[in-house]
Write a protein that binds this DNA or RNA. Structure first.
Lengths: 180, 180
DNA sequence: CAGTATCCTGTCCGATACTG
DNA sequence: CAGTATCGGACAGGATACTG
């Protein structure tokens, strides 16, 4: 999408999608996590057209997920390495991978997470970093945060649950409370 | 993308992207988690053109993430509810949300995860479901799984680390081992 | 209210050719 | 090897009109 977060410019999901929503972007990041850093590696491993690779690489750099830095000066050559923000995308990729394995890999996983030391397969699960409690629904839910604007507040409950101004179209069919 | 997993048809990330890679798909799922189920709700909350909504809803139903079921018979009306596979997408959305809040919300989070009972903000972290250990890199890594084909095996290390047939283009610059 | 049908535009993307 | 330039096709997506 071009314009994107027309209605919910604040939504962190929409904002993330603006950076990595294009099809190739996530796959390029996947390759970066795999160890690729040079133009050629991305191109061969992905089978992406060079002009598209250039474009996606540029936007990823512009968005601060990859850093372009010279590894040779004569001739001038660059490699593309993950920034801290890019590195932080790893859990997202791992979560997506787990979801894909769960539902779209009837033959079993083609790739999977394992303990590097023992090789034991690991299964990703979300917990709260502070308490360690599993992040399940409806024990946890998504609510408006401190920076929420009026529109966001009207669409997401606020906490504490002071019967937030309900969205008329939704209040009827969200019995236990809505999330995400 | 149309054709998509040209080179890595096995990759669970690519397979996931085939289902939810279109821009609107994830946002529609976000709305579904928020409680939306009717055509009108999706349309109003997203500001999406009705024909696009129809298309995306159809693919999501076809892919088994949403279920279309009648809630009225005269006139015939349908609602779109999350299937089990759709519900399982919630951790993905929450992880993306956390990443977006981390890096693209300088003003603070507009929405956030909280404990439904206490309202205490929660911060998602990935752990292994079986051992509870934090899924960090490089303690954990992505390797070829049991269903990996030849190409996948050549691109991902296998475990135990019997010096997997290294990808010539990558072996040089992946010192500690590559992941994801 | 819950969509379907039609038309149009933008751009993602692939293919190919070219350059230092 | 690491890209840039150009061309064309397919389709996502928007706008609008229409229906029971």
């Amino acid at each position: 999408m071009h314009n994107s977060s027309l209605i919910n410019p604040q939504c962190p999901i929409a904002r993330s999608l603006e950076r990595v929503g294009e099809w190739w972007s996530m796959l390029i990041l996947r390759e970066a996590f795999l160890g690729a850093s040079r133009f050629d590696q991305f191109q061969k491993n992905l089978g992406i057209a060079p002009n598209m690779l250039t474009r996606r690489l540029q936007t990823l750099v512009a968005d601060g997920l990859l850093e372009k830095r010279p590894y040779s000066t004569r001739p001038l050559r660059h490699e593309y390495v993950l920034t801290a923000a890019g590195q932080d995308f790893r859990p997202v990729l791992w979560t997506i991978m787990a979801w894909g394995n769960q539902h779209f890999a009837p033959e079993g996983p083609a790739i999977q997470l394992v303990d590097s030391a023992t090789g034991a397969p690991a299964e990703p699960m979300l917990v709260d970093r502070h308490t360690g409690r599993p992040l399940t629904y409806p024990a946890f839910r998504v609510v408006a945060g401190p920076a929420a604007d009026a529109r966001t507040k009207s669409r997401y409950p606020t906490w504490p649950a002071t019967t937030p101004t309900p969205n008329p179209t939704e209040s009827a069919d969200a019995p236990t409370g809505a999330a995400a």
